[in-house]
Design a protein around this nucleic acid. Structure first.
Lengths: 223, 223
DNA sequence: GTCTATATTGTGATAGAC
DNA sequence: GTCTATCACAATATAGAC
């Protein structure tokens, strides 16, 4: 333990007053939770990462689980609402697919470890998913997922009737979309190790993917 | 704590002698690790699940980490070697794709929580991935992943030159394949919650997927 | 091989000074 | 708001009887 600890303890001017300390703690918590999972994370490590004392974490967030929940909500808020908005927009299917791919890949490139963390949390702490639901409604539309699926399903069926597309349910299609965009990030440690990608290779891999995936996904729909 | 405990403590004939107790412990460990992640799992819970004393876990596996490693190796062995063999076989691309999809979906239907566990472990305990490598070589071919990619890449390039397929790297294609097969299982808790699938819905979802995915994936390749 | 203690940390959480 | 000190117990691990 005791990672290299090259942290810069903020200007030494304590007594923040504004919500700055809380923010720093939340950021540190995200870093540590994402790295170790909420089961493997240690309050002490988060405190060090934030440059504050461990007692302060409890002052702001009560319990470890409260902190974990806050981090999870923030993470989920980064992943879901944008996609749902795009999927239920009134652009053409073709445009929606391209926008989803670009939005996902750009967001995840900026936060590459989110998928692993969120998937891990949902598998190992399924009770945390109730937070997800409330996160989605507070982000705007209530019952957004079902609504987005309905819109998409209607549009897909319409285009299928016209002979443009092969028939596919909205559920299968959305899962395909999410799979192709998200899985590579969740599996990155494995991929990097198995097919030997260093981080430059990885960036190139993502560039290619961003360019090619939209058309490949649309091909999926061809009759 | 204290799960309902409807376990059947093996015929009361203790002093197994053969490797039966070790097997029971390993199975129990898999159950608990897969459910909680190796960070959230407790030795006590594993012992209860196996119907033995906690000290016995240490007798057989030394430390918690040793036990976790054993479980991870066994899990990885279920996921990887089969796919690699199919991918580097000399069947047509079309046949290989269908066989991979069916093999993956059938295997994962039998072990639906493996992907979440393996992905979680690799994200939160990356050091465990060295075990993966040695697991793969001991499973047969050394450097199997790179070898399979090379074979596949050659075949894809050949068919592209003939005009059958659009050009795609083996890396991108394998990631597409794995994404579409594995991600739905890793994301099942989320999907079930977000789009409201009960377990009957889920089984139907998988049936449709098993039937449609091969052609959709091949479409991906169309020029 | 399997068990019952028990040792020994580790770790979340609180009290209370400043 | 932030810290130091400490509590209470959870959890891994070991000793040693049977």
């Amino acid at each position: 333990m005791a990672a290299t600890k090259t942290r810069v303890k903020t200007p030494a001017t304590a007594k923040s007053g504004d919500g700055e300390t809380e923010r720093r703690i939340l950021d540190a918590a995200r870093t540590v939770f994402v790295r170790r999972g909420s089961g493997g994370a240690r309050m002490q490590e988060i405190a060090e990462e934030a440059g504050v004392n461990q007692a302060l974490l409890h002052y702001y967030f009560g319990t470890k689980d409260g902190l974990a929940l806050a981090v999870f909500r923030e993470s989920a808020a980064k992943l879901f609402p944008g996609i749902l908005r795009i999927l239920s927009s009134d652009a053409s299917i073709e445009a929606r697919v391209e926008r989803v791919v670009h939005h996902y890949l750009d967001t995840l490139r900026a936060h590459p470890f989110l998928p692993g963390f969120v998937l891990g949390e949902m598998n190992f702490n399924p009770e945390r998913m109730v937070a997800l639901a409330s996160e989605l409604v507070s982000a705007g539309v209530p019952d957004a997922p079902r609504r987005a699926l309905a819109v998409l399903g209607r549009d897909l069926a319409l285009r299928a009737k016209r002979g443009d597309f092969r028939l596919i349910t909205a559920e299968q299609f959305v899962v395909n979309l999410a799979s192709l965009c998200v899985f590579p990030f969740a599996a990155r440690p494995m991929l990097a190790h198995l097919i030997g990608l260093d981080s430059a290779d990885w960036e190139r891999f993502l560039d290619v993917r961003r360019a090619d995936l939209p058309q490949q996904i649309l091909n999926t729909l061809r009759p």
